[in-house]
Nucleic acid binder design. Structure first.
Lengths: 142, 142
DNA sequence: ATGCCTGCAAAGCTTTTGCAGATGC
DNA sequence: GCATCTGCAAAAGCTTTGCAGGCAT
């Protein structure tokens, strides 16, 4: 349950934190912007400010509870860290996000880092394309 | 020369465009922020506004002359498109950027896209780590 | 009781835009 | 000459911060 994970992160268990964690766990969108979370709070009639959403998400990130990604489009998206690393493939038309993990690629990255004298601390791999979902509006971005 | 490439992009050949393209070609930094370009213009005593730098870089991007990347840190970086696709490895301590190309990874990406029913239009692979450069300040980011 | 949290409003940063004058073709 | 371009300043969009009051422990 949320309470424990928040306390374990060294944070006080407060209503905003509980609610935000709950939303991240329950939402069908696994990748949400701060605005998305905020709107969902509004929908649930919670009186929590956008600034708090940002603060809490940043704290959760520092605590390793969530990951922050920078997809195209300026807004950061947040995703609950479920412990399984993966990369992303994003549809440029409908915004759908799929996750994938490729052992070969992960291995190559290590090799490349070594060859360049780097110790990898993190990486970001995002594929952008057009998905074949029939419901995808497949409209070119303006 | 610059003149031809600008005209070919369907843009009028103007002093700001020439200068900006020149800077991108001459700078030892292959990855520059708009601010970097602007500062270099100042250094060269050109009276070109930051807004123009952004406008021109965006036009160059649309024309395929430059690529825009979003490394960590909020600012976009621009890089002359020299025709050879590559990915990036960025030092979190000193900001140094190395380029690499791995055929295996590129191939895997295609395979992953196919498996997920996507047609890839673009991708972004950035490794973040610590470089072993003796001059690297190797200080942890605050 | 104390120190951490929150809401609000204001500020910060990067990037974009409106407009009037300037410039390339 | 006319459309495109530029500089300036203002606006926009996302995110952070200051502050005074509120809440968890």
């Amino acid at each position: 349950m949320e309470e424990h994970r928040i306390r374990q992160a060294g944070l006080k268990v407060t209503l905003p934190r509980m609610k935000i964690l709950e939303i991240l766990e329950q939402s069908p969108l696994r990748h949400m912007t701060a605005e998305d979370v905020y709107k969902e709070l509004i929908a649930r009639e919670e009186e929590i400010g956008l600034a708090t959403v940002y603060r809490v998400l940043t704290q959760f990130e520092a605590a390793g509870l969530v990951e922050r990604h920078h997809f195209e489009g300026g807004q950061a998206v947040f995703e609950l860290d479920r412990g399984e690393h993966h990369d992303h493939i994003v549809c440029l038309d409908c915004g759908r996000v799929e996750e994938f993990l490729d052992k070969t690629i992960e291995g190559c990255q290590e090799k490349i880092a070594r060859k360049n004298g780097f110790r990898i601390r993190d990486h970001s791999l995002i594929l952008y394309g057009e998905c074949q979902n029939p419901k995808c509006p497949n409209r070119p971005r303006e």
